[in-house]
Design a binder for these strands. Structure first.
Lengths: 218, 218
DNA sequence: GTCTATAGTCTGATAGAC
DNA sequence: GTCTATCAGACTATAGAC
């Protein structure tokens, strides 16, 4: 196994969403794969590494997953399902005000990338390792999740609540800065996920030219 | 070689800075490695893949580089050297105004990540594959390059020209959105690098709470 | 410097007993 | 479902001729 001094991801805690059932050899394999894929990458993790760390025999792993690639695909699917669920839920709980909706999406995006940073790193950095067949359904999920922010941005622009030079660039800036949180956030830094999420929500509002909320209650 | 439907990086054009001498087998190897590492990752590219695509025999490659890892290290070193050079140069050409300096750094960061997007992708996504020995000098370079933005942000805060909630978070947001440009920029999109760079420089100024420049001349 | 050929190791995945 | 044992091929890197 490789020796590295720099870690791709700052966080160390396990984080699979509660939806994922982690019982038995299959659960240990998924949880261990999440750690190793986040740390070493899919290509940098051998089936032997994975099985040894998960205390699972190779043949047992292949009783649960047809190929190593299917393990990755399941993790990335979990990642986008959880993100989409959280984003949609946050929209449902916010008012119809475009700025409130933008704040809700960015806050949730950042909070989710703090709590499930390993999932987010694997989903964004290892997606391209999947074959077309396994990637296709994931790309559908990904497009759905990204569509939520696009809709809010476009609706805010139509209602003249946002003064964006360009919706695409604002989208890329906001999603980019949020995505990177998964790579540098760690529980031992001097900020809580809530502080980061609030700051980034403010940044997003400034990027799109929305006035800062005068009060807590929108 | 793997078949993938999703590309990690949108750009396709070769881009090694002019400093890199690309003559002969060594040059072909470096140039080809840049493409393959950006597209497939370091772990997803075999020496055979690389040599075949570069029209270089394995034994010839090993006459120029001690290991496959040294090829990656050279590319990442080139990436950070070029970025550091460009950022420092842009600071020298800007005025002493913190906002002008911030704009210069962000513009240069984005322009460099458009022009050398493959280098930036490899440098950010494959750095963790290096062993400690090869990574150490690169981390020094990386810290130097990042320090330029930190200094500008702190100086602007001291002079009360920036109204940041938190310098670290602003830094992470600005560098994160700029870094991601390398992954999605392609020459065929509907924006020029200059447009993207100008927009992102505006975003950065808004993030740190600097007033928008009233005119072109700072 | 570049070639042909291959050493030695590790890879993903499987066969077959229990 | 889990085990032991292993296949067939791919991997990084090298030896030695020219």
């Amino acid at each position: 196994m490789r020796k590295t001094s720099h870690r791709r991801i700052a966080a160390t805690a396990t984080a699979l969403p509660p939806q994922a059932k982690l019982k038995g050899a299959r659960g240990r394999a998924l949880d261990t794969a999440l750690h190793l894929f986040a740390e070493k990458g899919f290509g940098g993790t051998s089936v032997r590494d994975l099985c040894q760390a998960a205390n699972v025999q190779p043949a047992t792993l292949y009783a649960h997953f047809p190929t190593k690639e299917h393990v990755l695909a399941e993790l990335i699917t979990l990642a986008y399902e959880e993100l989409y669920r959280a984003l949609r839920s946050s929209l449902l709980e916010s008012s119809s005000d475009p700025e409130a909706q933008l704040r809700a999406l960015v806050k949730t995006h950042v909070l989710s990338h703090c709590e499930y940073s390993m999932l987010a790193v694997v989903a964004s950095a290892e997606l391209h390792m999947l074959s077309a067949d396994l990637m296709a359904p994931i790309l559908t999920l990904k497009t759905q999740a990204e569509g939520l922010l696009i809709e809010v941005l476009e609706r805010g622009a139509e209602k003249k609540r946002f003064a964006m030079d360009d919706a695409l660039l604002a989208l890329k800036a906001i999603s980019g800065m949020g995505l990177r949180v998964a790579f540098w956030y760690a529980p031992d830094i001097n900020k809580t996920p809530e502080q980061i999420a609030d700051s980034f929500a403010n940044y997003a509002c400034r990027i799109v030219g929305a006035a800062a909320a005068p009060n807590d209650s929108q």
